[in-house]
């Protein structure tokens, strides 16, 4: 029970003080879990993260669940997850309540008139950086273009687009695996 409580308080602190979302929380988790508390060895931690990263859902929650489970089983998983999300829930509830009250104030409205176009830029910029880092060829560049066209222009539900993309990516992943096996076989035969 003691270790579950420690997991809760560790993740609670990270959840309460790390700005910048799940990926920013990762280095804090590593510092706490690997360096400070030494619950998990570094290589084991990064193996775990490699798997967690490829899963859907909230990255920070997935990380908390796996790390918690690794250290203290089911109780540990629950404690770490609650620790990671409770600060968010408390802070947002407070802010949303306050914001609802004062949203109509001219001062607040003026500030948010400035913020809204910035938010749009903050969404567009990382998506373009992501496209750049995906190293697209002339053939694959059609994927992000088609996605944008379907959702923004044809108003197709993003859920359907994702399902289609998952289908395509599964085929891609299977092909990659076959390719890997083939090269492995070639290396073995001679």
């Amino acid at each position: 029970m003691k270790i579950a409580w420690q997991l809760f308080s560790t993740f609670f602190k990270i959840g309460a003080f790390t700005l910048g979302g799940g990926y920013a929380m990762l280095s804090m988790v590593e510092k706490a879990v690997v360096d400070k508390k030494q619950w998990i060895a570094a290589d084991e931690f990064w193996d775990l993260i490699a798997i967690v990263q490829s899963l859907p859902g909230v990255f920070a929650v997935n990380t908390a669940l796996y790390v918690g489970h690794k250290i203290a089983g089911r109780k540990g998983a629950a404690a770490a997850m609650l620790g990671a999300i409770i600060p968010s829930i408390i802070i947002i509830l407070l802010l949303a309540t306050i914001f609802k009250e004062y949203r109509e104030l001219p001062v607040v409205e003026r500030i948010f008139k400035g913020i809204r176009p910035c938010v749009v830029a903050l969404i567009l910029a990382p998506s373009l950086r992501m496209i750049k880092s995906a190293k697209l060829t002339w053939k694959t560049v059609i994927i992000p273009i088609a996605t944008v066209a379907l959702i923004w222009w044809c108003k197709v539900s993003p859920a359907i687009v994702i399902l289609a993309a998952i289908g395509g990516s599964t085929i891609y992943a299977i092909l990659m695996e076959r390719k890997l096996k083939r090269t492995e076989n070639k290396e073995v035969k001679p």
């Binding site: 373009l128 995906a134 694959t140 992000p144 088609a146 996605t147 959702i151 998952i166 990516s169 992943a173």
Partner: peptide
């Protein structure tokens, strides 16, 4: 396998965010 799946998904995810 999941890593490759995500790699394949990446261009679509980027498009999703851009949209």
């Amino acid at each position: 396998f999941m890593g490759n799946l995500l790699k394949g998904l990446k261009p679509a995810i980027a498009g999703l965010i851009f949209a």
